[in-house]
């Protein structure tokens, strides 16, 4: 199946859902800091980032809707937990603030490489949305990279926590680059260069920043599974929370 201009529709849908689901889950997780962050400024920052990520999720779901005719709210709030295709990385609990910061930084760098790739894509809708999102992402990266730089070696405790967070988060983050179903078609139609290529670009960006913050990259294998709907149970709890009110009266106006 492909559109008139040779874009493989099904593979594109797979891609859009994966992007939308990633942003949805991370936005949800970040908003768990609203009211609980270590200082008011970070409370505001993570609440803001959460809204941006949820807004990006909505933007990807809206593109998906153009292809599938399914509404964003029903995609986000009515699916079974085992139907989402987010990477596992974004589904883990928010952890301590160090884990949240490290996850956000690794995610923000991935956003940079993937959105830059998409903004060169021949498929105009994905190109436009990517360019728009990149503008907001510049601020996210500035914020998360700044925290990595400041917390990485500030005190003994901050270093210990940041290193522990990286040990957990790094293999999970590699899971962002798990190949999608139909990825070969996306590559051949020029939508992007594929996840392996994105991962290498991503590594090239994160390595110097982490090293500079005195943080060592662990050697554990990538935490794959999410793109194939093989999730960890944290996602079940997250989705139960996410949908709990919506499901009291599905289809009603809320």
């Amino acid at each position: 199946m492909s559109t008139s201009d040779g874009i493989p529709t099904q593979a594109l849908e797979t891609l859009l859902l994966a992007l939308a689901d990633d942003e949805l889950m991370l936005g949800h997780r970040n908003a768990e800091w609203t009211g609980y962050a270590p200082l008011i400024e970070e409370d505001i920052a993570f609440s803001n980032i959460a809204q941006d990520e949820l807004g990006h999720s909505l933007a990807w779901f809206t593109l998906y809707q153009q292809l599938s005719n399914k509404k964003p709210d029903s995609l986000a709030f009515e699916r079974e937990w085992s139907d989402y295709t987010c990477c596992r990385f974004v589904t883990y609990p928010k952890g301590d603030f160090a884990y949240t910061v490290v996850r956000q930084y690794l995610f923000d760098e991935a956003e940079q490489v993937r959105l830059r790739a998409f903004s060169l894509s021949p498929y105009e809708p994905i190109r436009d949305v990517s360019a728009k999102i990149l503008r907001e992402e510049a601020y996210h990266l500035m914020h998360s990279q700044g925290l990595i730089e400041r917390l990485g070696d500030a005190t003994e405790e901050s270093h210990r926590r940041m290193q522990a967070a990286l040990n957990d988060a790094f293999p999970q983050a590699l899971g962002m680059f798990e190949a999608l179903e139909g990825e070969d078609e996306l590559i051949s139609s020029g939508i992007f260069g594929g996840n392996a290529k994105l991962r290498d670009e991503w590594l090239g960006r994160v390595q110097p920043v982490l090293e500079n913050a005195t943080l060592l990259i662990p050697g554990a294998p990538a935490d794959f599974g999410g793109r194939k709907r093989n999730h960890v149970e944290y996602l079940q709890q997250l989705v139960d929370d996410l949908q709990s009110v919506y499901k009291i009266a599905p289809g009603a106006k809320w």
Partner: peptide, 11 residues
């Protein structure tokens, strides 16, 4: 929970 962050940023 956030004390270490404030201390680190101050340091």
């Amino acid at each position: 929970d956030g004390r270490w962050v404030r201390e680190a940023l101050a340091a």
